[in-house]
């Protein structure tokens, strides 16, 4: 770990200023310190934002929730309002990491966690995300856990979050404070960049821009579920996950909000999949068609080829569950 300055921020403005000068925010630290110990990340300064007043969950005027960026994953999962009205979010959080990590990890930090690509984690390996221009050793390496959607020739990393997948399905928005003191709102789709030729740049956040909250829209009708597929029963990253919210009307799918983890460099949502389902009567053929749409541009890299059939099967199963069309 490279020596660094430790600065405890007393106000968001002060935090932003320090960060704009090259510092990195630390909230829970569960991923940042992990990476710093390996010197995969080597910030000159850590700006501790834990004393900022960003740990409330408040109801918004339109019936949604405004979740402070410092709310821990545990507190968010256990919030009675979330459990009742946004259960997919509770489920996603509870499927992630361990009890200890959920107690420390924060809402904002969870969104910004880095990929778990093992080539990113190993400084002896070429990685365009860690060291732009060095190449991608993962592509032709052991890539079992890596992405099949949204990849580029420069990077096939996945985003590891479960929480963000549920938030993507729920249409959550991130609220930030820019260094100029302005508040802006970003959908998760807007927040994350695809790797393209700059996999090292993962979000659109500007230097010093601080995530202050995540805003959930008002609860929606319908059934919600989070299905996570992994190699062991607990404490493992998703190979594939699906967050789904489906509202049925008169035997037809009125709305299907679907997001996917383990498949892409960011929590994945595809409007075409949802459009294919909307207004249709549930059927096996329909679900398979939706999966075809989801995977139309998917590309495996050998070890991770199985993610295509796995995603297909998991999506179909989730849709069966949510439309009550189970066999």
């Amino acid at each position: 770990m490279k020596p660094f300055d430790y600065i405890r921020a007393d106000s968001p403005d002060q935090a932003s200023d320090h960060a704009a000068q090259g510092g990195v925010f630390i909230a829970g630290g569960t991923n940042l310190l992990d990476l710093m110990k390996l010197e995969v990340m080597t910030p000159d300064a850590l700006i501790d934002i834990n004393r900022l007043d960003l740990n409330q969950i408040d109801e918004t005027d339109d019936g949604g929730l405004r979740i402070g960026a410092l709310v821990s994953n545990s507190d968010l999962a256990n919030d009675t309002r979330v459990r009742r009205h946004w259960p997919v979010l509770s489920r996603a959080l509870l499927a992630g990491a361990s009890g200890q990590l959920r107690n420390k990890a924060t809402t904002g930090g969870n969104l910004l966690q880095r990929t778990r690509c093992l080539y990113f984690y190993d400084r002896a390996m070429a990685c365009n995300k860690r060291e732009p221009g060095s190449g991608c050793a993962a592509r032709d390496g052991f890539n079992r856990s890596l992405a099949v959607l949204g990849t580029s020739e420069h990077c096939i990393a996945t985003h590891p979050s479960d929480m963000a997948v549920a938030m993507r399905a729920l249409g959550a928005e991130v609220e930030t404070l820019t260094r100029e003191g302005e508040t802006r709102r970003l959908t998760l789709d807007q927040l994350y960049r695809l790797p393209g030729d700059r996999p090292d740049i993962e979000t659109v956040l500007a230097p010093g821009e601080l995530i202050t909250a995540v805003v959930l829209p008002a609860p929606v009708e319908g059934r919600q579920t989070y299905r996570k597929v992994r190699d062991r029963a607990s404490y493992a990253f998703a190979l594939v996950s699906v967050a789904g919210i489906v509202e049925m009307q008169d035997g037809r799918i009125a709305r299907a909000d679907l997001a996917f983890g383990g498949l892409a460099p960011k929590p994945w949502r595809d409007a075409d999949v949802e459009a294919a389902l909307q207004g249709e009567a549930p059927s096996d053929a329909l679900f398979k068609k939706a999966a075809d749409v989801l995977l139309r541009d998917a590309q495996g890299f050998g070890e991770n080829d199985f993610k295509l059939p796995l995603a297909r099967r998991t999506l179909v199963s989730v849709l069966e569950e949510l439309t009550e069309a189970r066999r």
Partner: peptide, 29 residues
């Protein structure tokens, strides 16, 4: 069900050299 030291076939390095990715059973398994 899960244990495998994964070697990169190009250089023989252990790819999953940590307890998050070399899976040993957890309590729930």
């Amino acid at each position: 069900l899960m244990e495998e030291v994964a070697f990169d076939p190009r250089d023989g390095h252990v790819v999953n050299h940590n307890l998050a990715e070399y899976h040993i059973p957890v309590n729930a398994d």
